[in-house]
Design a protein around this nucleic acid. Structure first.
Lengths: 233, 233
DNA sequence: CAGTATCCCTTATGATACTG
DNA sequence: CAGTATCATAAGGGATACTG
């Protein structure tokens, strides 16, 4: 597990652990705030549960994270060592968004998008009561096409089935268009103007939805040929 | 080659390429100044040549490096994209030296040590003519025990056979002691004082050798429990 | 110097189903 | 919720020898 490079170089010793498949993504999920096994799974839908379990154990043995039993729940948390990987992972993500721009259709997983969007919402801006925003991903396979984001001031839930509450706003768009907004390759406003994405609902919500579901932290990374116009719309 | 994660996340897209075994070490070698196939091999002695070739091709196709034919030589050089990985790799190395301190015996490869030492020499401080420093790695296997560093103002060569010039100084020590100095876990002066390492030669050379063969760039990274005493001797 | 060509083999991984 | 169990396939990788 993580075959040795037989090198004393610190980069080699670090990579023995970190270059195992999925490992950096597990750490990314933990850095993003996931703490439970099934939360991690939602952010890593293509990773098999046994492999996730294996990676978590390995990372725990290696001192990168800690596994704690809290009542009947199990909680995973980064150790000080693991938390220190944040800067490196952010650099790698910034590098990725700059230099690996072309996404294949297979990269566009609606489950990942919804999971990312849901944890980016600033709940302090959510009104009292329950606000439901439906997403219609027009080109997703049938089972992954409709999503309901259930927003309350205390949290956001992602549902792939109708939770039964009134829908306050609906977002329509293709996976590629929505992902482009998330990654910062396009903005909400330019996409709305072009009609690539639409929002239905009250005027207020049409204004609020792009704020709640704003782009990822990597959106502001300047792109190679375009030093300071990354977010020009 | 670098199976897809099926994620649009920039970290995932970066790691699809970068978490393949050996890849980061190849880039590290290029960042350290190696430009030829056989130079890369010397820094990566446990990597098979076919795998190195495969990785170089993949990195070239991915735009991380450029392969150029210069006369009858082939030169590999990082592209702008590849060069931008420097900061990430340095963070990963710093993380490694902080959190992965325990080295197995198998990590202590004399070929890597000699190669690292040789390219760290500041040739501006080397006197005219030829200066040979011999290394005796007392616990290395017979074939990897004796090394000759041939220093001239224009470059440094590593030899695993007697080049025939007079030896001006000799360094004696175990792999573990020499690597500790290289990584910054110990200093030349403390190791000399303890007698773990010895240098024979003129007084001047006994002073000069620790300067020529100084520690790696990671030596100054502060260690976890020891915030600012990393290099206390 | 700069790689290719083989060749075997382990082991990593994906998919799926199932359990306390 | 939090995982384990099982299985078959693929392929990644190591070692070595050889070539223009």
């Amino acid at each position: 597990m993580g075959a040795s490079y037989h090198q004393f170089c610190p980069v080699a010793k670090a990579m023995e652990l970190l270059d195992e498949r999925w490992t950096m993504l597990v750490i990314r999920e933990l850095l993003s705030g996931s703490r439970h096994f099934n939360d991690l799974r939602r952010g890593l839908p293509r990773m098999s549960p046994s492999l996730l379990s294996k990676r978590l154990n390995h990372l725990a043995r290696s001192g990168v994270l800690e596994r704690r039993q809290e009542g009947r729940e199990v909680v995973y948390e980064l150790s000080p060592a693991g938390s220190e990987l944040q800067a490196a992972i952010e650099l790698l993500g910034a590098w990725g968004v700059r230099w690996i721009g072309e996404l294949g259709d297979a990269d566009l997983d609606p489950r990942v998008l919804m999971w990312d969007l849901h944890r980016n919402v600033d709940t302090a801006t959510v009104p009292e009561g329950i606000t439901v925003v439906r997403f219609d991903i027009v080109d997703a396979p049938p089972r992954l096409r409709r999503w309901w984001m259930v927003l309350t001031p205390t949290g956001v839930d992602v549902c792939d089935a109708d939770p039964g509450h009134e829908v306050a706003a609906t977002v329509n768009g293709s996976m590629r268009d929505l992902v482009s907004i998330w990654r910062g390759d396009r903005t909400w406003s330019s996409s709305l103007r072009r009609g690539a994405v639409t929002i239905t609902g009250s005027t207020q919500l049409q204004h609020q939805v792009p704020i709640w579901f704003g782009p990822s932290r990597f959106a502001t990374v300047p792109r190679p040929g375009d030093p300071d116009a990354a977010l020009a719309s």
